[in-house]
Amino acid sequence: TGEEYIAVGDSTAQQVGDLTFKKGEILLVIEKKPDGWWIAKDAKGNEGLVPRTYLEPYS
Rank of each mutant, 00 (worst) to 15 (best):
Thr1Ile: 13
Thr1Pro: 11
Thr1Gln: 12
Gly2Leu: 11
Gly2Glu: 08
Glu3Thr: 08
Glu3Phe: 08
Glu4Gly: 05
Tyr5Ile: 00
Tyr5Thr: 01
Tyr5Ser: 00
Tyr5Asn: 01
Tyr5Gly: 01
Ile6Glu: 04
Ile6Pro: 02
Ala7Lys: 01
Ala7Thr: 11
Val8Pro: 03
Val8Asp: 02
Val8Thr: 11
Gly9Ile: 15
Gly9Pro: 01
Asp10Thr: 07
Ser11Gly: 08
Thr12Cys: 14
Thr12Asn: 13
Thr12Leu: 12
Thr12Ser: 10
Thr12Pro: 13
Thr12Ala: 11
Thr12Val: 13
Ala13Phe: 09
Ala13Gly: 13
Gln15Ala: 12
Gln15Met: 11
Val16Gly: 10
Val16His: 11
Val16Thr: 11
Val16Asp: 12
Val16Arg: 10
Val16Ser: 11
Gly17Lys: 06
Gly17Leu: 05
Gly17Ala: 06
Asp18Glu: 15
Asp18Lys: 14
Asp18Gly: 14
Leu19Arg: 00
Leu19Tyr: 02
Thr20Tyr: 08
Thr20Ala: 12
Thr20Gly: 09
Phe21Tyr: 05
Lys22Ala: 07
Gly24Trp: 05
Gly24Val: 01
Gly24Thr: 02
Glu25Ser: 07
Ile26Met: 06
Ile26Tyr: 04
Ile26Arg: 06
Ile26Lys: 06
Ile26Gln: 03
Leu27Cys: 04
Leu27Ser: 00
Leu27Glu: 00
Leu28Phe: 11
Leu28Met: 10
Leu28Ser: 06
Val29Leu: 04
Val29Arg: 00
Val29His: 00
Ile30Tyr: 06
Ile30Val: 09
Ile30Thr: 07
Ile30Cys: 05
Ile30Trp: 03
Ile30Met: 09
Ile30Phe: 07
Ile30Ala: 02
Ile30Asn: 02
Glu31His: 11
Glu31Val: 12
Glu31Leu: 13
Glu31Cys: 13
Glu31Trp: 09
Lys32Val: 04
Lys32Trp: 04
Lys32Asn: 02
Lys33Pro: 07
Lys33Trp: 07
Lys33Thr: 09
Pro34Asp: 13
Pro34Met: 11
Pro34Gln: 11
Pro34Ser: 13
Pro34Arg: 08
Pro34Trp: 07
Asp35Gln: 03
Gly36Met: 04
Gly36Ile: 03
Gly36Asp: 06
Gly36His: 04
Gly36Asn: 05
Trp37Gly: 06
Trp38Met: 03
Trp38Pro: 01
Ile39Asp: 02
Ile39Thr: 07
Ile39Gln: 05
Ala40Gln: 01
Ala40Met: 14
Lys41Ala: 06
Asp42Pro: 01
Asp42Arg: 01
Asp42Ser: 05
Ala43Glu: 09
Ala43Tyr: 09
Lys44Ser: 12
Lys44Asn: 13
Lys44Met: 12
Lys44Trp: 14
Lys44Pro: 02
Gly45Gln: 04
Asn46Val: 08
Asn46Met: 07
Glu47Cys: 14
Glu47Leu: 14
Glu47Pro: 04
Glu47Phe: 13
Leu49Ile: 10
Leu49His: 08
Leu49Glu: 05
Leu49Tyr: 12
Val50Thr: 03
Val50Cys: 04
Val50Lys: 00
Arg52Asn: 13
Arg52Ser: 15
Thr53Glu: 15
Thr53Ile: 13
Thr53Val: 12
Thr53His: 14
Thr53Gly: 14
Thr53Asn: 14
Tyr54His: 14
Leu55Val: 05
Glu56Ala: 09
Glu56Pro: 01
Pro57Glu: 09
Pro57Phe: 07
Pro57Trp: 05
Tyr58Ile: 12
Tyr58Cys: 10
Ser59Phe: 13
Ser59Gln: 13
Ser59Asn: 13
Ser59Gly: 12
Ser59Asp: 14
Ser59Ala: 12
